[in-house]
Amino acid sequence: MEQCIIKSPLGYTKIVGDDEGISEVVILNSEEKETDIIPTELEDCVIQLKEYFEGTRKSFDLKLNPQGTDFQKLIWELLQEIPYGKTISYLQLSKRLGDVKAIRAVANANGKNPIWIIVPCHRVIGKDGSLTGYAGGLNRKKWLIEHENPYKQQRLF
């Protein structure tokens, strides 16, 4: 496995992968040294993440290889169907799965997503519209949702 660390607007980000695909993209809660030479296997991921943060990329075209249970992988695939700039609730995600009673398992799988941003777990919110749970912190989830929102709310006063 190859890995690198890049700096993003939300902090240092670790990317892990190989010829089989990207297996991990995580935000780090500490300052790290950026990788000087990006491994060839990770170059496309680094480029596409930078484009995303610049606002020029709305979808990713990468080979992914997340490690998890079959159920988790199914949920992660469903997450990738949520369009850029849109959010859904955990209940809606459970309905897409076909089992509304699995809402806790769905939320748990969402929380274990190892591929930050590319598998957009930040687009899942509470049914009341609240920003519930996010491994990277709610401040980052809020930033990501606002970054993807094409209609910026103007302050009235």
Rank of each mutant, 00 (worst) to 15 (best):
P39D: 00
S89E: 01
L64A: 01
K33S: 12
V100S: 12
G129N: 04
R104F: 13
I6H: 05
R96K: 15
A135V: 10
G136R: 04
R104Q: 13
Q92C: 06
G11S: 06
G126D: 14
L64S: 00
G129T: 05
P66V: 09
K112Q: 13
S89R: 01
G55F: 02
G137V: 00
I115Q: 05
I75R: 07
K101T: 09
T40R: 08
N139W: 15
G21K: 03
T132H: 13
N110G: 04
R96D: 10
G137P: 02
G17C: 02
R104P: 02
E20L: 11
I6P: 04
L42E: 07
G137L: 01
P83G: 03
K73G: 03
I145V: 08
V100F: 07
N113W: 02
G55E: 05
I37V: 14
I15Q: 06
S30I: 09
L28E: 07
K112S: 09
I22V: 15
D128W: 11
Y90H: 07
D99Q: 08
I88K: 06
S23Q: 07
P120V: 06
L62N: 00
K14S: 10
E31G: 06
G126E: 14
V25M: 00
G85P: 01
I37W: 11
K33P: 04
P66F: 09
E77A: 09
E146K: 15
I103L: 12
P39I: 00
Q80G: 07
W143E: 09
L138Q: 14
P114Q: 06
L79R: 08
I27Q: 08
I103N: 11
F71E: 11
L49S: 03
D36P: 05
E81K: 15
E81G: 08
E43Y: 13
I117T: 12
